[in-house]
Amino acid sequence: MIYRTLLYILGMAGGLMVCFLLLPARLPGTTLMGYGTNWLLIWLVGWSLRRPVPIAVGVGICLGLLQDTLVLPPEAGLLPSHSLGLGLSGGLTAMLEKQRYIQEDFISVALIVFAMVVVTETVNALQRTVLGGEVIAVWSDHQRIALSSAVLTSLWSPACYFPLSQLRHWFYRSVNQT
């Protein structure tokens, strides 16, 4: 049992690690109009689907801070930060009552991911506006980024979600058996 738990945790953390490392890497096929895939968000959505809201929010914030460390220059202050957008989308995902409305399959996960990318990018654009960005530039950028990134990320979401959901199913099945 302990081994299985360890394996489960290792698998989840490994998946997170891979998503993290894919984030700044622009592999062929993972860019559209110059914008990349938001791998962290796919992982977060997959993870938050059956979690309590506060924990999903916390994990989202944590991932956002780590992403800041990786992609933003160290001179930049705490804001703008990816953590707000990721925290919000983690919470929203956890709030969805999947058992009632949505089945856990690729299509619905891809849909959720699509919506969450739009949410995250909107939060980012809001932050930039509040922090004194040029309004027209920020929001015309936002349209482009949100659309292309949402399409791309939701198309890639099964690649990340499938192994993790298999791992989770295997783990809970073995827990229920013992």
């Binding site: 506060p54 924990i55 801070l65």
Partner: peptide
């Protein structure tokens, strides 16, 4: 305990960022 872990995680990430 999960919430605690998450809080510790956020703290660590903040420290790394700062």
């Amino acid at each position: 305990w999960q919430l605690g872990l998450v809080c510790v995680g956020i703290y660590c990430a903040l420290v790394l960022r700062q």
